[in-house]
Design a protein around this nucleic acid. Structure first.
Length: 933
RNA sequence: GCGCGAGUGGCGGAAUUGGCAGACGCGCCAGACUUAGGAUCUGGUCUCGAAAGGGGUAGGGGUUCGAGUCCCCUCUCGCGCACCA
């Protein structure tokens, strides 16, 4: 270990108190109706259940690499708040668990042939050891593990709720599938089944999906970044496959609107808004003259979505996505006369007919991966289909093109192109020589061609002269009146691709028979995955579960679903399971949910029916985690929560009332920590050298919680020295030397050696003097306010200021120091416990009798009266520049302050011979004398 | 390109509502104790200047008795989104 002498015996102290907290269940969160043992400090303090607070960390994925320094950043912040709020008298729910399904454990299993459960278990144990060593005040009796059958039983149960529900647009809510009404033309049971299956919140789709060959699985849109997998950065291609989808798009509006209810940062809300991507506009129908499709179901016109219906007069061509379903039907046999050569596509062989050109282009577009579409050339490509549509507003014939800059999955998969007022359309029109017609006059002398802002309509018939908003309203009304279109809203948000071709995930509680899917009954849960000799996908590309032939094929001839759920499933609802983690009959009892999420409970103070603040804010009171989950996890969890809310299983519309992202911690070189850079800080090393208290303190002292900041080993030493000073403030130097000798003779000495440590002789049970009370009360005030605002760095600085001053006191009043320890406790609880125990043993100061921990001692209150000085030093400025300082009585009147200021020698030298125009006096702040130049 | 956030000593960062810029920590300098110091304690540390005084919060302009803080313009960095019609 380290060869330098320790500042204080943190290794012994930390072990001692971690064992104590765990053995006594000090941080257990008590449920309504639960009997608190009489000797438990919570029971000693609270005769009635106090208001709750739910303070939550994003639970970690227990990777093989162990904890990194980013984890303890958020965890320390929530731990400080939890300990502080317990001292303030709240019943704090502060749990932890493991998000343990996932790809790394599975890939490890493929490599080694060992079951992923084994690696997962080892990793969890390692994480747990590391987290315990940091002394967080988690209620370990509520630990959850998403891979535990007792947990995923309920993940599967929630899936069945989704499966057995539909979204009723009338009520804007999810409802049980039995409430679905069938249209009159649906008669047979088979038709009813198909209709029902098409409405479920969990449904099967054959649409093209993001297939990642290297990972051997499909991915959700959210897991694909720039055409590569978010995990590993492997290429992703589009491939049609049968997949389970969750109908999150039904909730787009509510997910967007309810952001307003939340105390989240603006940037985080913005990210969610961007992802949901609401845009208002209009659909307009373009007729296709002479088009008579073979299929009577096929519409005879093409709908486009536009956010700028006011530019309809400027639509000079139309573009469909290459995959648009009408393309095949509307292609004519031959090119219209006079079709320019460059409209027919690039490949010579393919340009003979429109059909061959379209086919060639489709192949080209399909071959272009998403990566190429986004990262490489933005050059516009496309071909003319040979067909024409009619602009409804002026009966003009416009050519219909296909191009991959129009996406099949957004809007109607078709656009009207207005090159004069849309950047993309303009590029395309320039490439192919299509007409550009200005219909919006830009304000001022800006060029109207390519202008995309609001202006005034021109060349637009009955819209001429109207400013953009009015023109939009008028044309929309015009289209509606003629049945040619209507106002609509579109979202970027797509339904959530919910199945994965993996082994290490929750199996779907679904069986297939004769091409139809059926749910398992709740009593058959949990559905446990079978043991496998090999965790790879099958040679036929089927998921690994398909290898378990006996498991897949059921006696009655039906076949189990072989896909599994994505890793996000377990994390969508874990915060609810913490509330009631061992319940075998329900995912979470209604009564407990109402207490922990809404503060509603008959035996809680304040009574049922009201939150402590009386407002509607409810849910997890504080949720802390990294920005990497800004869209994925947080959107999915909100979605599940809303479904559970609609179905009556939870009582709040939103799960996480307040959310804070901790900032990234960089390496000492200011670069992102990574193995290849060799700048990774291992928490185990820091802990061994400086101890948990210093580690925690440093993580909070680095800077504001939500900012990106670099690690500094020197900085750790700084806070470590501070804790050494705290130790020396309390401990008698002679007894410290005895302890040191004891420790050198036995490095692994037990807690008994701490008995040799005596309190500093300067600490006496005496009345505190004025400066001492002032130092204490300023510290209480600063620390209290800063913790409330999550400004831990400045709170720590206030603790340092106090210690620096207290070191100089010849006699140190025990009462003052005891209060200080209560302030230090949330930050560095081990040393605070140890010193508090010593101090209270010697003085008997212990507000809660028989309580052996500082954790439940009431938080100190400050009194302003100790902080006000009778005499205050006031800066005097002349024309805003500091010239002198005067000392005045704190309640001096303005006249006497002005007099004192004007009498100052130094001030006079700056104002003599000048005209005094004004004297500004801000009480107890500043004096400013404005004089002529 | 669009959106969000941020630019303060050698470094991490302080500065409730506009009111003494640089708290606290690191680093550095000097001193004390010491066989020794990579322990501890004390003092100093924005900058130019001998001093008086001047300058100073990315740059420029403005509002104000007074601006790190408010307003306008410019620059730089970070994050997010990125053909979403």
């Amino acid at each position: 270990m380290s060869n330098t002498r320790r500042q204080y015996p943190f290794n012994i102290i930390e072990k001692k108190w971690q064992d104590f907290w765990e053995r006594r269940e000090v941080f257990r969160a008590w449920n309504p109706g639960e009997k608190v043992p009489e000797t438990h400090c919570f029971g000693l303090r609270h005769k009635q259940l106090p208001p709750k607070l739910y303070i939550l960390d994003m639970f970690p994925y227990p990777s093989g690499a162990g904890l990194h320094v980013g984890h303890p950043e958020g965890y320390t912040a929530t731990d400080i708040l939890s300990r502080y709020k317990r001292a303030r008298g709240f019943n704090v729910l502060h749990p932890i668990g493991w998000d343990a399904f996932g790809l790394p454990a599975e890939q490890f299993a493929i490599k080694t042939g060992r079951h992923p459960r084994e690696a997962t278990k080892e990793n969890i144990n390692n994480f747990k050891r590391q987290i315990r060593a940091l002394g967080f005040s988690y209620d370990w009796s509520r630990e959850v593990d998403t891979t535990d059958p007792g947990y995923y039983k309920w993940t599967q149960w929630i899936f069945l709720k989704l499966y057995n529900s539909w979204f009723n647009p009338e009520t804007n809510k999810a409802e049980p599938i039995d409430t679905l009404e069938y249209p009159p033309d649906i008669g047979t049971e088979e038709q009813r089944r198909l209709y029902r299956d098409s409405k479920r919140l969990a449904y099967v789709s054959e649409a093209p999906v993001n297939w990642c060959p290297d990972l051997g699985t499909v991915l959700a849109n959210e897991e694909v970044v720039n055409g590569k997998s978010e995990v590993g950065g492997f290429p992703v291609i589009r491939k049609p496959m049968r997949q389970w989808m969750l109908r999150i798009t039904a909730y787009a509006e509510r997910l967007l609107n309810d952001l307003e209810l939340l105390d989240w940062t603006p940037s985080l809300k913005e990210m969610q808004r961007n992802w949901i991507g609401r845009s208002e506009g209009a659909e307009a129908r373009f007729e296709i003259p002479g088009f008579s499709p073979g299929n009577p179901e096929t519409p005879r016109d093409i709908s486009v979505f536009t956010t700028r219906p006011d530019t309809l007069f400027g639509a000079t061509y139309m573009v469909l996505a290459p995959e648009h379903r009408l393309v095949d039907e509307l292609i004519p046999d031959a090119w219209p006369e006079g079709t320019p050569e460059n409209w027919k596509g690039k490949e010579e062989s393919a340009t003979k007919t429109p059909r061959s050109a379209v086919e060639a282009y489709r192949q080209y577009a399909a071959a272009r991966s998403d990566l190429e579409r986004t990262e490489l050339t933005r050059e516009k490509t496309g071909v003319f289909t040979g067909a024409y549509a009619v602009n409804p507003v002026n009966d003009e014939r416009v050519p219909i093109w296909i191009a991959d800059y129009v996406l099949a999955s957004y809007g109607t998969g078709a656009i009207m192109a207005v090159p004069a007022h849309d950047t993309r359309d303009l590029e395309f029109a320039t490439e192919f020589g299509l007409p550009v017609r200005v219909v919006v006059q830009a304000p001022g002398d800006e060029d109207s061609t390519g202008f995309t802002g609001d202006g005034v309509n021109v060349n637009s018939g009955f819209l001429d002269g109207l400013p953009t908003p009015q023109a939009q309203a008028k044309i929309t009304k015009w289209l509606e009146e003629r049945g040619l279109g209507r106002k609509t809203v579109q979202y970027k948000l797509r339904d959530w691709l919910f199945s994965r071709q993996r082994y290490w995930g929750e199996p779907f509680p679904i069986v297939w028979k004769d091409g139809a899917h059926y749910p398992l009954s709740e009593s058959e849960l949990p559905l446990v995955p079978p043991a496998l000799p090999d965790f790879k996908p099958t040679e036929e590309g089927e998921p690994p579960l398909a290898r378990a032939v006996d498991w897949v094929n059921m006696p009655d001839g039906s076949r189990r679903e072989t896909n599994t759920m994505p890793q996000w499933a377990g994390s969508c609802w874990y915060y609810l399971r913490y509330i009631d983690p061992r319940n075998d009959d329900e995912f979470c009892s209604n009564e407990l949910e109402r207490y922990w999420m809404r503060n509603l409970s008959p035996d809680a103070t304040g009574g049922a029916g009201k939150t402590p603040t009386g407002d509607e804010k409810a849910g997890v009171d504080l949720y802390v985690g990294g920005t990497e989950h800004a869209v994925l996890h947080l959107l999915y969890a909100r979605f599940w929560h809303k479904v559970l809310y609609d179905l009556g299983y939870v009582s709040t519309p939103e799960p996480f009332q307040r959310l804070v992202n901790q900032g990234l911690i960089l390496g000492e070189d200011g670069q992102k920590m990574s193995k290849s850079r060799g700048n990774v800080i291992n928490p185990d090393d820091v802990l061994a050298e400086y101890g948990a208290d210093a580690f925690r303190l440093y993580e909070m002292f680095m800077g504001p919680l939500d900012m990106v900041k670099p690690w500094s080993t020197k900085g750790v030493e700084g806070v470590y020295r501070f804790l050494g000073r705290v130790w020396r403030l309390f401990i008698d130097p002679a007894s410290q030397r005895t302890l040191d000798q004891g420790l050198t003779s036995a490095e692994n000495a037990g807690t008994a050696v701490l008995e040799h440590v005596r309190l500093n002789k300067d600490i006496r049970d005496v009345e505190a003097g004025e400066p001492q009370l002032k130092a204490l009360h300023s510290c209480i005030k600063k620390v209290t306010e800063d913790i409330e605002a999550l400004r831990f760095n400045t709170a720590i600085s206030a603790l340092m200021v106090f210690v620096n001053e207290a070191m100089s006191w010849e006699v140190k009043p025990a009462g003052v120091l005891a209060e200080f320890l209560k302030l230090l406790n949330p930050f560095s609880p081990h040393i605070a416990e140890e010193l508090y125990q010593k101090l209270s043993a010697s003085t008997g100061e212990n507000a809660l009798e028989h309580c052996e921990t500082v954790a439940y001692q009431p938080w100190p209150e400050w009194d302003e009266k100790y902080m006000v000085e009778s005499i205050v030093e006031l800066p005097v400025q002349v024309n805003g520049k500091l010239r002198d300082k005067i000392t005045v009585q704190v309640d001096a009147d303005k006249e006497s302050i002005e007099k004192a200021a004007l009498e100052s020698e130094r001030v006079r030298s700056f104002i003599d011979g000048k005209e005094i125009k004004k004297v500004i006096i801000v009480p107890n702040k500043v004096v400013n004398i404005a004089v002529s130049k």
